[in-house]
């Protein structure tokens, strides 16, 4: 029996979507209905549903970011394919038309029953195709989804949920990290990588590490994008600090750093950055 997860922050709309889906597709089992992005990631990874209905504008984390996070952490397991995604949005600011008949679908709010019925038909066809092991063509692979999410993220609209669109595009020269009463001035040239840690960011240099009270999302626009590469939703690395990138049989990429013992994992979303010239 197919399973689905709904992520929608407005309770009335969530209940209505659930009711409409049950009417149009009685076999579909809604395994969870959550009100924000982080819960969506958690529940999706825990319950591994076949379908995800994600509202784009949600508190904490947008639907796009949630999809990205789910894709990054999705286990590599043939028997457990990546869910089909349907984005739900009130206003099409993401050029979602590109998704029609593609790896994922989208519906606009207010959700009209005819449109939702079309989506259901499409999803049923995709699931049926997926059930036949020999015909993989036509069903979206994880790589397709990645490709499209990358495209959407590149549109730059992702930050809008928290209103964190970059205001200062200037490139940061030093990181000012507070330690007790002192402020340590850390030149960004010495930073090996940044790692998100709850409400903080860890700043790792060859000698030591600092904690700064900001989010990676706020920090990123202030960094020179040519030098500082995002390799995971929680990691930004200075590209000239990378020694080697190793790809294992499963396609997973791991980085070693120059002059530092840490190994960094590259998420699927960014694995395409590491190819031989």
């Amino acid at each position: 029996m197919p399973t689905a997860l709904i992520a929608e922050d407005e309770p009335l709309l969530a209940a209505n979507l659930q009711a409409e889906l049950q009417r149009l597709w009685p076999e579909l089992q809604i395994v969870a209905s959550v009100g924000h992005g982080e819960a969506a990631v958690q529940q999706a990874l825990a319950l591994a549903p076949d379908l995800l209905f994600l509202d784009i504008r949600m508190p904490g984390m947008t639907g796009l970011e949630a999809a990205q996070a789910i894709a990054e952490d999705w286990p590599d397991d043939e028997s457990n394919p990546f869910p089909l995604i349907v984005f739900v949005t009130a206003y099409d600011q993401y050029a979602l038309q590109a998704f029609e008949r593609a790896a994922v679908d989208y519906v606009l709010k207010p959700v009209l029953p005819e449109r939702l019925a079309q989506t259901c038909t499409r999803l049923q066809a995709a699931l049926a195709q997926r059930a036949q092991p020999q015909s993989q063509a036509g069903t979206p692979s994880l790589d397709d989804v990645m490709q499209q999410l990358r495209g959407l993220v590149a549109q730059g609209g992702v930050g809008t949920a928290a209103g964190a669109a970059p205001a200062q595009q200037g490139t940061l020269k030093v990181i000012q990290a507070g330690v007790g009463n002192a402020i340590h001035m850390v030149p960004v040239d010495e930073v090996l990588y940044f790692e998100a840690a709850d409400k903080y960011v860890r700043v790792i240099t060859a000698e030591r590490e600092h904690l700064i009270r900001t989010s990676l999302r706020e920090l990123q626009p202030q960094l020179d994008a040519n030098r500082f590469w995002q390799i995971h939703r929680g990691t930004i690395v200075r590209c000239d600090a990378i020694g080697t990138a190793l790809r294992d049989e499963a396609g997973k990429v791991t980085l070693t750093l120059r002059g530092h013992g840490d190994k960094l994992t590259v998420s699927r979303m960014y694995a395409h950055l590491f190819k031989a010239m």
Partner: peptide
Amino acid sequence: EPHMLFNTLANLRVLIGL
């Protein structure tokens, strides 16, 4: 704001039935 307007209409649409 279109986001506000369409979300409000979506809620309204649900409430009409409920």
